[in-house]
């Protein structure tokens, strides 16, 4: 595998979690923000209710693709946290704002494993 391909490689489960997180953010915005629904319907002719239902279906489909262990943890985190996956920026977990171990934060080159914050339990994505 080339160095470039290796850099682009990411654990498929982490990829799924990130997709889920982004879809959940869209869903939450459509459900909770009147302004979001207004902008989407006025400028883009989107029906917020139908879009919300479509997102729910896609979220359920992707959740079904999670490995059992990852899914169990995902479902444990979900009820108590807005975001299941949080970014780590400059070594700080943006779920709990606690510094994470250097060895974990330094793994940004690979993202080959699904990792969690030891403090808050959220799945993490090293952003920088």
């Amino acid at each position: 595998m080339t160095a470039a391909a290796d850099r682009a490689r990411m654990d498929p489960q982490l990829m799924l979690l990130l997709e889920l997180q982004d879809l959940r953010a869209q869903r939450k915005e459509l459900a909770e923000s009147e302004q979001a629904g207004q902008v989407e319907s006025e400028h883009f002719h989107i029906d917020p209710t139908a879009a919300g239902q479509e997102l729910d279906l896609k979220i359920a489909e992707l959740e079904g693709e999670l490995d059992p262990g990852v899914r169990a943890r995902y479902e444990r985190i979900l009820p108590s946290r807005d975001r299941v996956v949080v970014p780590v920026i400059n070594g700080v977990c943006y779920g709990c704002f606690v510094s994470i171990p250097t060895a974990t934060a330094g793994d940004q080159e690979s993202h080959t494993d699904v990792q969690g914050c030891e403090h808050c339990g959220s799945f993490i994505y090293i952003l920088g």
Partner: peptide
């Protein structure tokens, strides 16, 4: 590169809504 791939998927999902 990894972030680009995720962002592409998310934008595509949005385009699929309309």
């Amino acid at each position: 590169e990894k972030s680009e791939a995720i962002l592409f998927k998310t934008l595509k999902r949005r385009e699929n809504l309309g």
